[in-house]
Design a protein around this nucleic acid. Structure first.
Lengths: 166, 166
DNA sequence: TCTTGTCTTCAAGCGCGGTTGAAGATGTAC
DNA sequence: GTACATCTTCAACCGCGCTTGAAGACAAGA
């Protein structure tokens, strides 16, 4: 044991299933050395990367985005303070955005919905500025498009999804 | 026009694609009357339900959960203050939880990760209490299981997903 | 009347993030 | 040397939240 972990050991340490680890590798998020027999061997630093993936997912990033972030970090050593500093600033911003939105929604629970105005036309929360009908897609406007990625509670389909109505 | 909307009109008003509206109907979230020819006709109140769905998705509920919530509300009239009061209390709690988690994660950006301890074993944020390895599943522990549903950034698979490692 | 647009159903497909299972190689403990 | 656990790849499948497309009915204006 050169400080190298088998996939099972890494799974045990990180709490991430082996199938997920292989999946992450396929997606380029982590990498493994191989034994002669073709078995994966993970340097310890990989555990940090896996932890990073889990953390980032929890924050609300997609695996693709996480891959992009990971590409900025060294694969084989802990990141420097500076490297982390850059990264965490971006993340912090995204988290703040999402929190702000949740607070806005929470406010809507009493102010807008509570007052019965969930009738849509007048509702500033559900219908921010009446740009709605003109804009095309639709739910994307409130749901995802404005903030592509964060929480990705619904970046939904794939293409533009330009709805059905002309 | 009895105050009844066609599916296209409802789509235009709500910003939700007709395909999604049919999908919601299939899932029991909304209902439509039918013309002789079988075309859908929506009472105006349905627009409120659709708005509700969008709002709730944004908060982070699944369609199934939203169906449950909608079942508690009248289909044909605006909800009373009391009805809204009950509902919004539960929601507020969920939003608060999610915000709290995001704040915790944000804190981790500097306190835990920033200090380099993303080495997993000592990390209080990634590894809340070391119950991790014992508990079975794994990522579910941090990711979804604790808070089944909210934000559902990852309630992931279906069953228990008891990983691969014994 | 004819054309164009909107509606219907039904089946299939997509992106995401994996899991499951089969078939086989390898490693380890007794 | 023989079990039995762990590993490999590969293909298929899952749940979620829809979208897309085909094939056909219906509606409204010129």
């Amino acid at each position: 044991m050169d400080g190298l972990l088998t996939i099972g050991e890494l799974a045990a340490r990180t709490g991430v299933a082996t199938s997920a680890l292989r999946f992450y590798e396929e997606r380029g998020l982590i990498r493994a050395e191989r034994t002669e027999a073709g078995h994966r061997r993970y340097p310890r630093a990989v555990a940090r990367r896996v932890a990073f993936v889990v953390f980032a997912q929890r924050v609300g990033l997609t695996l693709e985005e996480i891959g992009g972030e990971l590409a900025k970090l060294p694969a084989d050593r802990p990141p420097t303070r500076q490297e982390w500093g850059r990264l965490s600033r971006t993340w912090r911003a995204r988290i703040d955005e999402r929190i702000a939105e949740l607070e806005r929604l929470r406010g809507g629970l009493t102010e807008c919905i509570g007052c019965g105005c969930l009738s849509l036309d007048r509702c500033a929360i559900l219908n921010p500025g009446d740009r709605l009908a003109e804009n095309g897609p639709g739910p994307r406007l409130w749901l995802g498009d404005a903030r592509p990625g964060l929480d990705r509670a619904k970046t939904g389909g794939q293409g533009d999804a330009a709805a059905e109505r002309t």
